[in-house]
Computed example of a mutant assay.
Amino acid sequence: MTDITNALANKPVVEAIQYLLEQYPGAVAFSTSFGQEDQVIADIIWRNHLPVRVFTLDTGRLFQETYDVMDVTLARYKQPIEVFYPETAAVEKLVSEKGPNSFYDSVENRKQCCGIRKVVPLNRALEGVKVWITGLRAEQSENRHDMQTLEWDEHRHLYKYNPLIHWGYDEVLAYLSQNNVPYNKLHDKGYISIGCAPCTRAIGPGEHPRAGRWWWEQSQKECGLHG
């Protein structure tokens, strides 16, 4: 861990990813949910022709605007994006037994839904992966404040590389603008952190970026993908 951390120290994102690809050829993957941070990383990967495997999770409850930006992104870069869906039987059982909106009833129910629709598909997508690239930023939530650029995911036995962890929101917006990167139009309507449609709302002035996620509950505002 120390050796690879030192090797990545002070490297620009492109050079860092190139180094990780050299160390783990064919085993570096980037997960995108088509948020602003993820669009920055996708642009960096494809603009620089980096052979990183890119995938996304389709929970079955996404905004139409999320599908729209995926469509535009595919047309713009003409690069493949693998799509992973929840297990049909698990979703059918959940909805049959608890209804389509059980996540509003309790944190336990919400985490169960996230587990079925996100965590299980993610674990399947990460099989064989040695380095998982994410779009996490420290200021997104308290849970992410102390995260490092490179971390060891003990549960999944892989490195998690967070190239934007120390970026500010203004830096993300500047990159998108300067490079004409397509982004989700919901961001222009106050949706900063975008997840599933029934679990996401716009935030008001002064609200925390994650306040629009699972706004009806008091929790760490995480779904289990990153803790």
Rank of each mutant, 00 (worst) to 15 (best):
T2K: 13
I4D: 02
I4V: 15
T5H: 09
N6S: 14
A7I: 01
A7W: 01
L8A: 01
L8Y: 00
A9H: 15
V14A: 08
A16N: 03
I17N: 07
Y19S: 01
L20F: 02
E22P: 00
Q23A: 09
Q23V: 06
G26Q: 04
G26C: 10
A27H: 12
V28Q: 03
S31I: 06
G35D: 05
G35T: 04
Q39G: 00
V40Y: 11
I41Y: 04
I41E: 06
I44H: 09
I45N: 06
I45S: 02
N48T: 09
N48Y: 13
H49T: 12
P51H: 09
P51K: 08
V52W: 07
R53I: 01
V54Q: 08
F55N: 10
T56V: 04
T56W: 03
L57R: 02
T59N: 07
R61S: 14
R61C: 10
L62R: 03
Q64F: 06
T66V: 04
Y67L: 15
V69Q: 07
V72L: 11
V72E: 14
V72K: 15
A75C: 05
Q79W: 04
E82D: 15
V83M: 12
V83H: 10
F84I: 09
P86K: 08
A89I: 11
A90S: 10
V95P: 07
E97R: 12
E97M: 09
E97I: 00
N101W: 10
S102C: 13
S102R: 02
Y104M: 11
S106F: 09
S106Y: 05
V107G: 00
E108R: 08
N109L: 09
R110L: 13
K111Q: 15
Q112N: 14
G115P: 00
G115R: 02
I116P: 05
K118G: 02
K118R: 08
V119E: 03
P121A: 10
E127A: 13
E127R: 11
G128T: 10
K130Q: 14
T134R: 04
T134K: 06
L136T: 08
L136D: 10
Q140H: 15
S141C: 04
E142D: 14
H145E: 13
D146Y: 13
D146F: 09
Q148W: 00
L150M: 05
E151G: 01
E154C: 01
H155Q: 14
H155P: 00
R156P: 11
R156H: 11
K160A: 13
N162E: 06
P163V: 08
W167N: 04
Y169D: 12
D170R: 13
E171P: 03
E171D: 15
L173S: 07
A174R: 15
A174H: 14
Y175M: 07
L176W: 02
L176Y: 03
S177V: 02
Y183K: 06
K185G: 00
D188S: 12
K189L: 15
I192M: 07
I192A: 04
I194H: 07
G195M: 02
C196F: 02
A197P: 01
P198M: 02
C199T: 06
T200I: 04
R201V: 13
I203E: 03
G204K: 11
P205R: 06
H208Y: 00
P209C: 07
P209R: 09
P209A: 05
R210H: 10
G212P: 06
W214T: 00
W215M: 02
W216L: 11
W216Q: 15
E217S: 14
E217L: 10
Q218L: 10
Q218G: 00
K221P: 01
L225Y: 09
L225A: 11
H226Y: 11
